[in-house]
Amino acid sequence: LADDRTLLMAGVSHDLRTPLTRIRLATEMMSEQDGYLAESINKDIEECNAIIEQFIDYLR
């Protein structure tokens, strides 16, 4: 059971955070005209990261 939990934490961490990191990188490359959009996307990314952290904390 502990091994399954560790594997799940690693999978969640990698499989969800990697795309979020790519999205954040894309927002950094957006033009200044789209700053409001990038800010909104980054806020959503932070919310997703917080949910992931809560899930990982729960698994521990």
Score class of each variant (00 low, 15 high):
Leu1Ala: 11
Arg22Asn: 00
Arg24Trp: 15
Thr21Gly: 12
Gly11Val: 04
Pro19Phe: 11
Leu16Glu: 02
Leu37Thr: 05
Met30Lys: 15
Ala50Asn: 00
Gln33Leu: 05
Leu1Glu: 13
Met9Arg: 02
Glu53Ile: 15
Leu8Pro: 08
Asp3Phe: 09
Phe55Asp: 03
Leu16Gly: 04
Ser31Glu: 07
Pro19Arg: 10
Asn42Phe: 07
Thr18Glu: 15
Ile56Leu: 04
Ala10Tyr: 02
Asp34Cys: 08
Arg5Met: 01
Leu1Trp: 11
Thr6Trp: 15
Ile52Gly: 14
Asn49Ala: 02
Leu59Gly: 13
Leu59Asp: 15
Glu47His: 14
Ile51Gln: 11
Glu46Ile: 07
Met30Trp: 02
Asp15Glu: 03
Leu20Asp: 03
Leu59Lys: 08
Ser40Trp: 00
Asp15Gly: 03
Cys48Ala: 03
Leu7Pro: 08
Ile45Pro: 09
Ser31Lys: 06
Leu16Asn: 01
Ala26Leu: 15
Asp57Lys: 10
Gln54Phe: 13
Glu47Phe: 11
Leu37Val: 03
Val12Gly: 03
Arg24Met: 04
Ile41Cys: 03
His14Gln: 00
Leu20Ile: 00
Glu39Val: 10
Cys48Lys: 03
Tyr58Arg: 09
Cys48Met: 02
Leu8Tyr: 03
Tyr58Ala: 15
Met9Phe: 03
Pro19Thr: 11
Ile51Glu: 12
Leu7Trp: 05
Tyr58Gln: 06
Ile23Asn: 01
Ala10Asp: 03
Asp57Gln: 15
Glu46Cys: 00
Ala2Gly: 11
Met30Leu: 05
Tyr36Arg: 06
Lys43Gly: 06
Leu59Thr: 14
Leu25Phe: 08
Leu59Arg: 15
Asp4Cys: 13
Leu59Phe: 13
Glu28Ala: 07
Ser13Asp: 13
Leu59Val: 08
Arg22Gln: 09
Asp15Asn: 00
Ala26Met: 01
Thr6Tyr: 02
Gly35Trp: 00
Glu39Ser: 00
Asn42Arg: 05
Lys43Leu: 03
Gly11Ile: 15
Asp3Asn: 05
Glu53Met: 12
Tyr36Ile: 07
Tyr36Asp: 04
Ala26Ile: 06
Ser40Thr: 04
Phe55Tyr: 03
Ala50Gly: 07
Thr21Gln: 01
Glu47Gly: 07
Met30Pro: 09
Gln54Trp: 10
Asp34Gly: 14
Met9Val: 15
Ile41Asn: 06
Ile41Ser: 13
Ser40His: 10
Leu7Gln: 05
Asp34His: 14
Glu28Thr: 04
Arg24Ala: 08
Arg24Asn: 09
Gly35Met: 05
Asp4Pro: 13
Thr21Tyr: 02
Gln54Val: 09
Ile52Arg: 11
Asp4Ala: 12
Ser13Cys: 11
Glu32Phe: 06
Leu1Phe: 13
Arg5Ile: 09
Ser40Tyr: 08
Asn49His: 07
Thr18Phe: 13
Leu1Tyr: 11
Gly11Arg: 13
Lys43Tyr: 05
Ala2Val: 07
Pro19Met: 15
Ile41Val: 15
Met29Asp: 04
Cys48Asn: 14
Ala26Gly: 06
Thr21Phe: 08
Ala50Met: 04
Ser13Gln: 13
Thr21Leu: 08
Asn42His: 09
Gly35Leu: 06
Arg22Tyr: 03
Leu8Cys: 05
Met30Gly: 05
Asp44Cys: 03
Val12Thr: 08
His14Ile: 02
Ser40Glu: 11
Ala2Tyr: 13
Ala26His: 01
Asn42Ser: 00
Lys43Val: 12
Ile52Pro: 13
Asp15Arg: 00
Arg24Lys: 14
Arg22Lys: 02
Leu16Met: 02
Leu25Asn: 02
Asn42Pro: 05
Gln33Ala: 07
Met9Ala: 14
Asp44Leu: 07
Phe55Pro: 04
Ile23Trp: 00
Leu7Asn: 12
Lys43His: 00
Leu16Ala: 13
Glu46Trp: 09
Ile41Phe: 02
Tyr58Lys: 09
Met29Asn: 13
Asp3Ile: 10
Met29His: 08
Ala2Trp: 15
Gln33Glu: 06
Arg5Lys: 10
Ile51Asp: 11
Glu47Arg: 00
Leu37Arg: 14
Glu47Asp: 12
Met30Cys: 06
Ile51Val: 12
Ile45Arg: 05
Gln33Arg: 06
Ala26Phe: 11
Asn42Glu: 05
Glu32Leu: 06
Met9Gln: 12
Leu1Thr: 13
Gly11Asp: 09
Thr21Lys: 14
Arg17Thr: 10
Tyr36Gln: 10
Leu59Gln: 10
Ile23Thr: 14
Glu32Thr: 06
Asp57Gly: 09
Asp44His: 10
Met30Asp: 15
Gln33Ser: 05
Ile52Gln: 05
Leu20Ser: 08
Leu7Glu: 14
Ser13Pro: 12
Ser31Pro: 12
Gly35Thr: 06
Arg24Thr: 05
Ile51Leu: 15
Ser40Met: 14
Glu46Leu: 05
Asp44Val: 08
Asp57Ile: 12
Thr27Asp: 14
Met9Glu: 08
Phe55Asn: 05
Gly35Asn: 07
Ile45His: 03
Arg17Gly: 06
Arg17Pro: 08
Met30Asn: 09
Ile51Tyr: 07
Glu53Cys: 12
Leu8Ser: 02
Thr6Lys: 00
Asp34Lys: 13
Asp44Glu: 01
Ile51Gly: 03
Arg5Ser: 10
His14Lys: 01
Ile51Pro: 04
Tyr58Asp: 12
Ile51Ser: 10
Glu28Gln: 14
Pro19Gln: 11
Ile56Cys: 03
Ile52Lys: 00
Arg22Trp: 07
Leu7Met: 04
Leu7Asp: 00
His14Ser: 00
Ile56Gly: 14
Thr21Glu: 15
Glu28Asp: 07
Gln54Gly: 10
Thr18Gly: 12
Leu8Asp: 05
Glu46Gly: 09
Gln54Leu: 12
Leu16Thr: 07
Glu32Asn: 07
Arg22Pro: 12
Tyr58Cys: 00
Glu47Ala: 15
Gly35His: 09
Thr21Asp: 10
Asn49Gln: 04
Ile51His: 04
Val12Glu: 10
Asp15Pro: 00
Asp34Asn: 13
Gly11Trp: 11
Asp44Lys: 04
Met30Val: 15
Asp15Phe: 01
Asp4Leu: 11
Arg5Glu: 15
Asp34Met: 12
Leu16Pro: 05
Ile51Thr: 03
Asp15Tyr: 02
Arg24Tyr: 02
Ser31His: 07
Asn42Ile: 13
Leu25Lys: 09
Ala50Gln: 11
Leu1Met: 12
Phe55Cys: 06
Ser40Gly: 11
Leu20His: 13
